[in-house]
């Protein structure tokens, strides 16, 4: 079967990483847009949440798709990490990386796992929050806790690092590398993660600092 052959090859596994990564980035964009309503007022945010949940089918399909995407991304990512670990880093007595700023590319599995930990805390806290409390209240209650918010901010920094390699890497895996666009790509690879940090981190800081005390 052609797709079994494709997906069992080294390049095919990269394509799973890149495709799931791209779709997750696109989801994060919609999520960031929705969450930005928090900066307007609790009523606007509650209105957005109620509107969204008045279409349970949309929410269900999105949730299942996201679960599948995250599972694919994490499973294949960890499998590749495990496979590559076997080419041990101790194969030389002296190892030197020539590439500058290789921190993000070297730490992909670790920043990814921080994001995974975050996702479980986040879903537990918000998706499975008590149904009788308005979500706008839950957001304020949870994020007003200094350490809860701090954890969020740390996780968003990990996500920013993950994507500061991942976004470029994804395009490279899709075969998009052309001198005409490479400057634009490197700007987006910095800009998109920072945009996420600004919005998501901003929400956490908003409550953490007390600015959103009576939002």
């Amino acid at each position: 079967m052609w797709f079994v052959r494709l997906l069992s090859s080294s390049i095919g596994k990269k394509l799973i990483m890149a495709t799931s990564g791209l779709l997750l980035v696109l989801f994060l964009m919609t999520h960031a847009a929705g969450n930005a309503t928090i900066f307007m007022s609790s009523d606007v945010f509650q209105g957005y949440a109620d509107e969204l949940h008045s279409h349970p089918l949309i929410v269900l399909i999105f949730s299942i798709s996201l679960l599948v995407l995250v599972l694919c991304h994490v499973a294949v990512g960890l499998y590749l990490f495990w496979e590559n670990r076997q080419v041990s880093t101790s194969r030389y007595i002296i190892t030197k990386r020539v590439v500058k700023n290789s921190f993000a590319s070297e730490t992909m599995p670790y920043t990814g796992l921080v994001v995974l930990l975050f996702l479980s805390v986040h879903i537990f806290g918000f998706t499975f929050s008590p149904k009788h409390v308005d979500i706008s209240v839950t957001v304020k209650n949870l994020l007003s806790n200094f350490f809860y918010s701090l954890f969020y901010v740390i996780a968003f920094i990990a996500l920013t690092i993950h994507l500061s390699h991942g976004f470029w890497s994804m395009l490279q895996t899709f075969g998009i590398n052309h001198p005409r666009y490479n400057t634009l790509i490197s700007r987006l690879t910095l800009g998109i993660p920072l945009f996420f940090l600004l919005i998501f981190g901003g929400v956490a800081l908003y409550f953490m600092t007390g600015l959103g005390a009576n939002y």
């Binding site: 090859s9 080294s10 390049i11 596994k13 990269k14 590749l80 496979e83 590559n84 080419v87 990386r97 020539v98 590439v99 290789s102 590319s105 070297e106 992909m108 390699h165 470029w168 890497s169 490279q172 895996t173």
Partner: peptide, 15 residues
């Protein structure tokens, strides 16, 4: 053939 020879998976590290 490249996969069969036991070479690793690219992670775009640019080294």
């Amino acid at each position: 053939q490249m996969d069969k020879e036991g070479f690793g998976n690219c992670t775009n590290a640019k080294e």
